[in-house]
Simulated assay, not measured.
Amino acid sequence: MKSIATLAALSLLIIGQAHSQNRGAVSTQTKQTMNKENQGEQYTFQLSDRVTRQKVTFKNRYGILLAGDLYLPKDAAGKPMAALAISGPFGAVKEQSSGLYAQTMAERGFVALAFDPSYTGESGGEPRNVASPDINTEDFSAAVDFIGLQKNIDRSRIGIIGICGFAGMGLNAAAVDKRIKAVAVTSMYNMSRVMANGYYDALTPEQRTQTLEQLGEQRWKDAEKGSYAASTNHLPEKLTGNEPQFVVDYFDYYKTPRGFHPRSVNSNSSWTATNPWSFMNMPLLTYIKEISPRPVLIIAGEKAHSRYFSEDAYKAAAEPKQLVIIPGAVHVDLYDKRDVIPFDTLEAFFNKNLRSGSTAKANTKPTKGK
């Protein structure tokens, strides 16, 4: 059972409000060093010699121009192929985890599109560093629009992968968008649940009311200034040794050369102070059962602080569904550790469920392993 102190720290990082205009960022010297290490295309992984990568843009239903990287296997045959749209983690960009996933799936025979969500990365939308349960769900469907227009794609064989906070968005998109034939999620966060209720649903009704009152007061301040304050709750510039382990894990990915990217919200800035507003009363997974009869694959680390989101989503989803727990893995291990991410499982899942006329059912029992 988590201590009250740890729960408070977890909740504040996600839900806490700003009381100033300070942005969370690494020091100028550290940023210069990391930017130098990420010169050129600034990806956190090397481009595989087995794929090609092409920068693309497309608009969502709200007219926001989204930026993506389209990965294709170099040995692709001329026949129409299965395709995947991929996004996440929450606060990341396509040059980080989603791009690694897309490249790896392209190596395994899929056309894969990694994209930046609205208001972040190279995608459009003002103000910057805002998330929305509706618009970010729409971003997945816009990616399906784009990828389904490509001449080498079989429209009946499109799936999606959502990572971290975009796992919840991906499940939400699959529920409403019947063109999505299979959905897989890793290290899932249900952002509307955590923002509305806190971690492990520990937020009391009084604390929720207080949070909403603070958000309202922040809106007055933003309206008076004509600009949007940044949240003061973000990853620290350096660790002190007193942080919860999940903060240490996030820091190790976003704030070091391992995963740092100058356009990543979590690496180099922070969300707006009022970012939780629309998540507070718009539950993402209300219609998760409507994904059925299309299959759902949910993957989580055994030691991930977020594991309960995956297990609860699995319980709520209808058949066919599969839950895979990776032994010993923490939340961020599924961002970029190729020896931990179960790419064989992902490949088998999509090969099975995106083949023409597929009606195959997923394994319905929770499993452990890679």
Rank of each mutant, 00 (worst) to 15 (best):
T30M: 09
T52M: 04
T30W: 07
K79Q: 13
T57R: 14
A82D: 03
A82W: 03
V93G: 02
R61E: 10
S48N: 02
N60S: 06
T57K: 13
F58K: 07
G88P: 10
A82H: 07
F58Q: 01
P73R: 06
R50S: 10
A76P: 05
L47D: 04
E37W: 10
I64V: 15
N60L: 04
A77K: 15
N38H: 09
S98P: 02
M81D: 01
G78T: 08
Q54P: 07
L70R: 01
Y71W: 11
Q46I: 05
S98C: 00
Q46Y: 03
N38Q: 09
L47K: 12
T57C: 12
Q39A: 15
V56H: 07
R61H: 11
S97D: 06
T52Q: 06
K36Y: 14
D69V: 00
Y71D: 04
K55R: 11
P80M: 09
T44Y: 02
D49W: 09
L47P: 01
G68K: 08
S98L: 00
A67K: 10
G63F: 04
N60Q: 06
K36H: 13
N60D: 12
A77F: 08
L66C: 03
T33D: 07
F58G: 08
D49P: 12
A92I: 01
K79S: 13
I64S: 02
P89L: 08
D69A: 07
Q39I: 11
G78N: 14
E37D: 05
V51H: 04
A77Y: 08
P73M: 06
N38S: 13
A82I: 02
A77T: 15
S98F: 01
F90T: 02
E37K: 12
P73L: 01
E37F: 09
M81S: 14
N35K: 10
L66H: 05
D49F: 09
R53V: 15
F45Y: 13
S98D: 01
K59Q: 13
E95R: 07
L66K: 05
Q96I: 04
P80L: 06
Q32D: 01
K36S: 13
D49N: 15
L84M: 11
D69M: 03
